[in-house]
Computed example of a mutant assay.
Amino acid sequence: MLQPLVIGLGRSGSGLHLKTLVRLARRTAATGDPLVVLPAVGCDPCADALRPVGLPGEVTAVTTLEQALQHVDPATAVVHVCTPPRLRYDLLAELAGHGFRRMIVEKPLAASADELDALIRLRQETGLELMTVAHWITSRLAGRLRRLVSGGRLGPLRHITVDQHKPRFLRSLATDGHPSALDVEIPHSLALALDLAGPAELRSAHCWDLRCEDRGLPRLGGAHIELEHRSGVVTLLRSDLGAPVRQRSVVCEFEGGTATAHFPLSEDDDHAQLVIAPFDGGTAAPPAGILDADGVPGIGHHVFRDDALTDFLDGAYRGFVSGAGGVGNFPLACATARLLCAAREHCAVTSPARAGSR
């Protein structure tokens, strides 16, 4: 079994990782296959002011790494790095110096091409088992999209459009961890597009400012990225962080129809939806809402549970136990980070788009 150390107790570290780890520890213990050792340790300079997560004994909060080392053994720990992407290399190098080897890093993996190259060298030199959070990729919904792409039921994939919209005024005004909207939601959808359609080149990218009353936050209002994949697929990623409503949807356009995937919007409900419609209006076996023997979804409206982050962490910890942690995840994380770096460079030399542009 492995013990979590979560560094950075903001929304991601405390609201997502710690809560999910406690849930995963309870679930695997109840099935007689314990995977996560509690207490999980949360480390943040402001940890004393944060509301406790879990029951007494399930989470220990500390304010420094030195204090954390009194509660965890690097040899049996998994570090969750939930700090902002800027200057991430220094933290990972420090952790490696203390003997930590298993690490799960929040997206994006790096904030610049130079930092990414440095992280690749650090991983090679120290033997890090390094993963990035990629629960969209490992979700049940993404699995059904992959099987639809490979199964050919609707013909070849032609176009992907991803919409990730939500109002993010409060967090953007209160923190400065993300330099632009490219670093907030786009990394999830970018990785999914690469997973579904293969390697890609950047066609275009732009950001716009987030405006609220008399304040404006440069490049935090939203972002668009357009990609051209070597497979011939074209992808458009759209994220509006000033939107009045929340949306997490993926539309895959095939030669013979469409698949519209809706990811769960929040921790309030973990159900995903997938609507598959042929252009000719016909039907296809199996019946609507049913999977065939190969797991390819049939025509119709599918609704199913999809607790993607819990399943991702379950798979990540089992990979660490088996010694395969990060093997398949890291190349995709690097490809995603490089395209994000290219998009940042493109946006740095172009004028911001109009606020709220879609």
Rank of each mutant, 00 (worst) to 15 (best):
E129G: 05
P4F: 02
T336E: 15
R211P: 00
A197Q: 08
G326P: 09
L130V: 10
V6G: 04
G232H: 02
L227G: 10
G319L: 04
A191I: 00
I7C: 03
E66R: 13
V327P: 00
L122V: 07
L91Q: 10
A61H: 12
D240W: 01
C43D: 01
G315H: 11
P4C: 04
A96C: 08
T336V: 03
T336W: 00
H301S: 08
G281C: 05
L309M: 13
A333E: 11
V296R: 09
P264A: 07
G143D: 11
W136L: 06
R158L: 14
R215N: 06
F279V: 09
G319R: 02
H229P: 06
Q273L: 06
E129N: 07
A205H: 01
M1Q: 11
L9N: 07
A259W: 08
L119C: 03
C82H: 02
R27W: 05
L194C: 03
R140E: 15
L196V: 11
Q3H: 04
T175L: 11
T28M: 08
R102T: 05
L24M: 06
A61V: 02
D270M: 10
I186C: 02
P179E: 14
H224N: 11
L141G: 02
T132F: 00
E129H: 12
N329G: 03
P56R: 08
G222H: 05
G13T: 05
N329D: 15
